[in-house]
Design a protein around this nucleic acid. Structure first.
Lengths: 243, 243
DNA sequence: AACCTTATTGTCCATTTGACAACAAGATGG
DNA sequence: CCATCTTGTTGTCAAATGGACAATAAGGTT
């Protein structure tokens, strides 16, 4: 953990200060989406040092020479924000000649979608601050991070319709309405309750728990859980998830 | 053009020989698909120098410091194979620690789909040979190129259903049957002619030429052309192409 | 003119989608 | 204890879509 300050480019000032055990000219940036009470948020960090001190950006940094790309993304995220145990997928690589000041740096963007309530965000030692921002109310971002974020949002909206990534955001046991509201939040649309319900149930991806909702002032809803094995069985047969 | 031999990593032997005006540790590899009389092919080059001499691989090389990523991909492809005037899209970035011998090199893969008949392939000065291979009958490939290619094929099959990239492969004026056969080749399935026809026509992406097929021993088919403007108008309204 | 091939249009039915009504099950408040 | 409120769950129906295949049209060949 004492390495944080040398491995995040947030502490970086000029080329000669890039640490030795990393790949030069190549960085990682993470686009982490969080759903917080129906609002789509994004995880940002404020730089504590270097020429971008005081500015907000995506959590990222340098890749170690002996480290695979996804591992680097995972490590950097944990170091800067404390967020861990999530599955990062590669988004796209950004490399405009002038995207980084003074030297040529190409960055590989990774993304993930998590439940913002579940993750206690803690600024790492190399970050002055780390927190969730609503995607509709963002601070000014460093470098080409606005472009990366923009791409990430579009990508997310496409992906969420084709992969069951939404389920990551819910507790293990959830109601159909919770699931529906999640999709409404991400897609920014209203969905018909009965139709949504039938569509999901027909996929045979949910298994009913023998439990119901408690503590609500109305009829308690059935609780379900996502059946990952069923999903894998189906995709191998050519099934494709679509909302 | 005299720079070919210094800018392609096919001539590369050890780190110290990487030229100075490129990004270290970062390369490009192109996955170029060609359709040749209904067969899906892939463009490969044979290395003329370096430790991979005599072996086949994807056409790729180093990125210049003052060059955007897609420009690098385009240039390298032209230098190595003579193929030009096509639109390369980013595929994915591959960076396993041990993917490249002796040093850490991450590679950004680009891809495109072209009509193999239309492109005269000419080995560049730094390549011993360049030609199309059927994807079912490939030579042994260097590095992790089999993995990149595998990923590219899967990606292509998904993309071709959602983007009208197939139209690149046809002459400007084409018949509906030509279009259908193209999709059958890429997707590896049979399609119903009347239904395919209606599906395509309903999209309003084709405009009829006032010409018909000539020189055929049967009823001449109407010729159509792809209406790019119509496509853009529709996508902005949220239309999604699906086959 | 008979016949071949491909083009194009028509039809039918099963499935899916979207909109919305209806009923069920609790909880709350009088 | 009953009326009422909220959300859960099931039903229904018309329109749109998709897939299978028959029928007809338009040319060239023999």
């Amino acid at each position: 953990m004492t390495q944080n300050t040398t491995l995040s480019y947030h502490s970086h000032v000029e080329p000669s200060q890039t640490p030795d055990n990393v790949i030069k000219s190549l960085s990682i940036d993470n686009v982490i989406f969080g759903l917080d009470h129906g609002n789509l948020k994004i995880l940002l960090v404020k730089h504590s040092e270097g020429f971008s001190k005081g500015q907000w950006g995506l959590p990222g940094g340098w890749i170690r020479l002996d480290e695979n790309l996804r591992d680097a993304a995972t490590r950097l995220l944990q170091e800067l924000t404390g967020v861990h145990d999530l599955y990062l997928e590669q988004l796209k690589t950004f490399g405009r000649v002038d995207r980084f000041p003074n030297e040529r740096v190409v960055t590989i963007a990774y993304y993930a979608l998590v439940s913002a309530e579940d993750y206690k965000v803690v600024a790492g030692t190399s970050a002055a601050d780390a927190c969730w921002f609503s995607v509709n109310d963002l601070p000014e971002l460093i470098f080409d991070h606005p472009e990366i974020l923009q791409f990430g949002i579009q990508f997310l909206q496409q992906q969420v319709r084709r992969r069951p990534i939404g389920f990551n955001l819910l507790p293990e046991k959830f109601t159909l309405l919770q699931l529906q509201e999640l999709y409404e939040a991400i897609l920014g649309t209203k969905l018909d309750k009965p139709n949504f319900r039938r569509k999901i149930m027909k996929m045979n991806l949910l298994s009913a728990c023998d439990e119901k909702q408690t503590g609500v002032a109305h009829r308690a809803a059935q609780l379900y859980r996502f059946d990952e094995q069923a999903y894998h069985r189906l995709t191998e047969k050519g099934f494709s998830f679509e909302i």
